[in-house]
Amino acid sequence: MRNIPAALQAKLESGVTTLCHCWKLTRRDDVVQGFTDHDDDLVIDGVTYRAGTGFISSEATSRFDLSVDGAEIAGALSDDALLDSDLAAGRYDAASVETWLVDWSDVSLRVLTARSTLGEVKREGQAFSAELRGLADSLSQDSGRLFTARCSADLGDAHCRFDLVAGGLQGEGIVTSIESTSTIVADGLDEFDEGVFTGGKLTWIDGANAGLSVEIKEHRMASGHARLSLWQAMPELIASGDTFTVAAGCDKRFVTCRARFNNVINFRGFPQIPGNDFVIASPDAGAGNDGGSMAG
């Protein structure tokens, strides 16, 4: 239940027109931005809500599956507010959004009307629109672990628990040349065998893509230099001299976990689960049909 200040309630009942909407966006990297549909900037609790960004919102409706249908915000891209490159880089993916109804003549009179997260973002020229997904939307999402033969963890994460640094499987490199938008040649990784970083992760330290990560498609050695092919092109141009860190990859098979990383105790797959061939197999009159290793 919303707690509406008495003074604001009185203004709502009187039909005054000193009300506006404010949106507070908090990205996953903790960057906070404020926007308003008022004609002047507003400062609330130390956050400046910028006017002149063209921000508008639509009404939200809910469907029976608890997801949000038709709720969105729209606005303009600008150098001092929202950058197209930031949207393309995914910096606003799943950002939290607070929607406030505010009396611009006295910003202490305000009420929180909705909490949501940014969903799909569409861009067209210098304009954008973003889907808002309400809190109930998470209830309609699939969650939990999947029963698969391969491990569900990523090498070195909290579930895998393998120490990449102690294992000598993390390095730092510098770009020496760019072969394509998704292929680079780098120095600093000569001590690592070819293929160590295939399926691993590259994270940019500096340059236009600083802070962004991408999966490595292939790691090869050529003329004493590491050649890294990325699964996707970066949103900004890569330049010679850009530095990065790389972490080794894993094909998530049980045999790899045992032989290469000696980390079977933390394997999060189900290597004994029957495959598709077993599931669709039919009895064979010439076979023992005793269940084999699956007998119990």
Score class of each variant (00 low, 15 high):
residue 117 T to M: 13
residue 178 I to D: 00
residue 89 A to R: 04
residue 217 K to A: 15
residue 10 A to R: 14
residue 56 I to R: 15
residue 91 R to Y: 11
residue 263 N to E: 02
residue 1 M to D: 13
residue 182 S to G: 05
residue 293 S to N: 12
residue 287 A to I: 06
residue 27 R to M: 08
residue 241 G to D: 00
residue 271 P to Y: 06
residue 25 L to H: 01
residue 136 A to Y: 11
residue 236 E to K: 13
residue 144 G to D: 06
residue 21 H to A: 15
residue 73 I to E: 00
residue 13 E to N: 15
residue 191 E to R: 14
residue 143 S to M: 12
residue 254 F to Q: 08
residue 232 Q to R: 14
residue 72 E to S: 12
residue 280 I to D: 06
residue 273 I to D: 09
residue 148 T to I: 08
residue 25 L to E: 01
residue 194 E to K: 02
residue 265 I to C: 07
residue 276 N to I: 15
residue 107 V to P: 05
residue 251 D to S: 02
residue 74 A to P: 07
residue 229 S to Q: 11
residue 21 H to K: 14
residue 207 G to Q: 07
residue 35 F to N: 01
residue 54 G to D: 03
residue 198 T to E: 00
residue 94 A to S: 15
residue 96 S to N: 11
residue 229 S to E: 11
residue 25 L to W: 03
residue 221 M to G: 10
residue 14 S to M: 07
residue 126 Q to W: 11
residue 8 L to S: 05
residue 199 G to C: 07
residue 56 I to S: 15
residue 31 V to I: 08
residue 79 D to F: 10
residue 261 F to Q: 02
residue 7 A to D: 14
residue 163 D to N: 07
residue 124 E to T: 14
residue 94 A to V: 14
residue 99 T to G: 09
residue 15 G to T: 07
residue 150 R to M: 13
residue 37 D to I: 06
residue 193 D to M: 10
residue 154 D to K: 11
residue 263 N to R: 03
residue 160 C to W: 01
residue 130 A to I: 06
residue 235 P to E: 03
residue 144 G to P: 04
residue 126 Q to L: 13
residue 61 T to E: 11
residue 161 R to N: 08
residue 35 F to T: 02
residue 113 T to R: 14
residue 232 Q to L: 13
residue 22 C to I: 07
residue 290 D to I: 04
residue 199 G to L: 00
residue 140 S to P: 03
residue 274 P to R: 00
residue 137 D to M: 10
residue 247 A to W: 03
residue 175 V to Q: 00
residue 55 F to M: 10
residue 120 E to V: 10
residue 285 A to H: 08
residue 85 S to G: 11
residue 252 K to C: 00
residue 42 L to V: 05
residue 91 R to D: 09
residue 67 S to M: 11
residue 42 L to F: 05
residue 37 D to S: 04
residue 201 K to R: 12
residue 172 E to R: 15
residue 61 T to Y: 12
